[in-house]
């Protein structure tokens, strides 16, 4: 769904550029809470993985293809604010190095595919996770549902922008129904990929899946606590041992 230059007029492109820049600025601050020494490396890898899977267009209808957008996937794996940073990086690299998506359309592409998909995907994920049984197996399912909904909503987001700043006179109703139809199919592919990717990581290291944490901490505290010390994975935040950093720093200096 990479929007090329020329589809939207200058004021709309500037507006989406401001929205994208503001959101990335906020995300830079908020992502800090999601990132530590273990999750930061995962975030870079999730961005690289999303880039790779975005190259894999799958056929969805006669003569039409689609690829993963990755908003719900990244939000569930590394947290929504970090996901915004990861996806924005992907779209910037695609636009600058690969000429995929326009330069003036970069704000539009970050807004639609990096903000809308993350927001919608993560909210649907949270709602589904709250409704589904409270166990780890629900996490990939909820992520898939978030992915499924996120793609057609982003497609409608494009139609909304086109209604405001489209450069060609078109029948918006026809554009909306065509966009919704094809992107519902792409959303099914998005859901399958997201389910498989989240399911794989939940199976091997659920503690590395941001969206799985509420189910883990309770269990790890009561049952798995001793294992954490043995394998050194450090699932839970370690509380300070009581040493006073400020005084020890002065002593060492």
């Amino acid at each position: 769904m990479h929007v090329p230059d020329g589809f939207l007029d200058a004021p709309t492109s500037v507006a989406t550029g401001v929205v994208a820049a503001t959101a990335v600025g906020i995300a830079l601050g908020r992502a800090r809470r999601e990132l530590d020494d273990r999750t930061a490396p995962m975030a870079g890898l999730v961005a690289a993985f999303v880039f790779a899977v975005q190259m894999l267009n799958f056929p969805v209808a006669a003569g039409t293809s689609g690829h993963l957008l990755g908003g719900a996937l990244a939000a569930v794996l590394v947290g929504p604010w970090t996901a915004v940073l990861c996806l924005s990086t992907v779209f910037i690299v695609q636009a600058l190095l690969f000429a995929d998506g326009g330069i003036t359309a970069l704000g539009t592409n970050i807004t639609l595919m990096g903000l809308v998909t993350v927001l919608v995907g993560y909210l649907v994920f949270l709602a589904a996770r709250a409704v589904l049984p409270k166990r780890l197996a629900s996490v990939p399912l909820a992520a898939g549902l978030g992915a499924l909904v996120s793609v057609p909503v982003a497609a409608l987001g494009f139609v909304g922008l086109y209604a405001v700043g489209g450069t060609t006179d078109v029948d918006l109703g026809l554009v909306a129904s065509a966009m919704l139809g094809v992107h519902t199919l792409i959303g099914i592919g998005e859901a399958v990929i997201t389910f498989l990717a989240v399911g794989s990581l939940v199976a091997v290291r659920p503690d590395l899946v941001h969206g799985a944490r509420p189910f883990l901490q309770r269990r790890e505290l009561t049952i798995l606590g001793p294992d954490d010390g043995l394998d050194g994975s450090g699932t839970l935040d370690e509380q300070g041992t009581g040493a006073e950093p400020s005084t020890s720093q002065e002593a060492s200096a």
């Binding site: 930061a40 975030a43 690289a48 880039f51 790779a52 940073l85 990086t89 910037i92 950093p245 060492s252």
Partner: peptide
């Protein structure tokens, strides 16, 4: 592309991450 995205996104998220509190002297 994978390498460039990994370096940029990984570097960015590493830079903004929470630093662990010093645990001992």
């Amino acid at each position: 592309g994978v390498v460039v995205v990994l370096v940029l996104a990984g570097g960015l998220t590493w830079a903004v991450r929470r630093r662990p509190r010093p645990e001992s002297a």
